[in-house]
């Protein structure tokens, strides 16, 4: 495929389609099928492997994702942190470890879903699609970390400007088109995950229960009082 076409399709078309789908469909799904927003946890059916798969996966991916978001939001500070070799090493090794943790958890979760029949019966096609996409995402991420290290210092100069340009509706392919193919693959797959997100169980991330941290322990709902008053 022609390179310009390829870039336009995957770095301009795909991001907009994905992000648009993400916002539209999560909202539509919440409003019309709000009931389906659930973690769909299978811990009840199988308890032991659940621990060894889901704990590393969640801790790993939250760390990695958190750092990606940070690098997007405050690229300069991240680059500043990584400007000292020791700090750069800490960052790189920490992220690589988190990535490996995610990989281990993800693979264990996939094995568990195949090997345990009880879990297999509650596994849908969309679960497999998203697991596969996540696996590619983690593998390409680890690939980038190995083949093109020191991402925490070049990310701010290379990827963030591109993401900003997309976010500000003025896509600039100058930096991204010269990226190594592993990085490109990682970015494209990320947009696939975002686009597919509303159709999967991943929506449970959006309803993560932060109000619990602030609310009073007991909840009372009054059906005959105009405003639902607490206790």
């Amino acid at each position: 495929m022609n390179n310009t076409y390829f870039n336009a399709l995957f770095f301009i078309g795909l991001p907009y389609v994905s992000v648009f789908t993400f916002f539209l469909m999560t909202i539509v799904r919440y409003r019309t099928h709000g009931f389906t927003y659930s973690s769909l946890s299978s811990q009840f059916l199988e308890n032991r492997q659940h621990f060894w798969a889901l704990m590393p996966f969640h801790y790993g991916i939250l760390t990695v994702l958190g750092m990606h978001i940070l690098a997007f939001l405050v690229p300069r500070q991240v680059a500043w942190w990584s400007s000292v070799p020791l700090r750069l090493w800490i960052m790189e090794i920490g992220m690589l470890a988190a990535g490996l943790l995610t990989l281990v958890g993800l693979v264990a979760a996939m094995v568990r879903r195949r090997a345990n029949h009880k879990i297999a019966v509650v596994t849908t096609a969309s679960d497999w699609v998203i697991l596969a996409l996540l696996l590619i995402q983690v593998l390409t991420g680890l690939g980038v970390a190995m083949m093109h290290p020191w991402g925490s210092s070049w990310f701010a100069l290379a990827v963030t400007p591109y993401l900003y340009s997309v976010a500000t509706l003025n896509p600039n392919l100058a930096v991204v088109s010269v990226m190594p193919w592993m990085v490109k693959w990682h970015v494209i797959n990320a947009f696939l995950v975002i686009g597919f997100f509303p159709f999967t169980r991943l929506v449970h991330i959006l309803v993560a229960p932060n109000p619990y941290l602030w609310r009073r322990p007991q909840v009372v709902r009054w059906y005959r009082r105009p405003a639902a008053a607490g206790r």
Partner: peptide, 8 residues
Amino acid sequence: SGALHKRG
């Protein structure tokens, strides 16, 4: 989630 509640 605050889904569980007591009816007043």
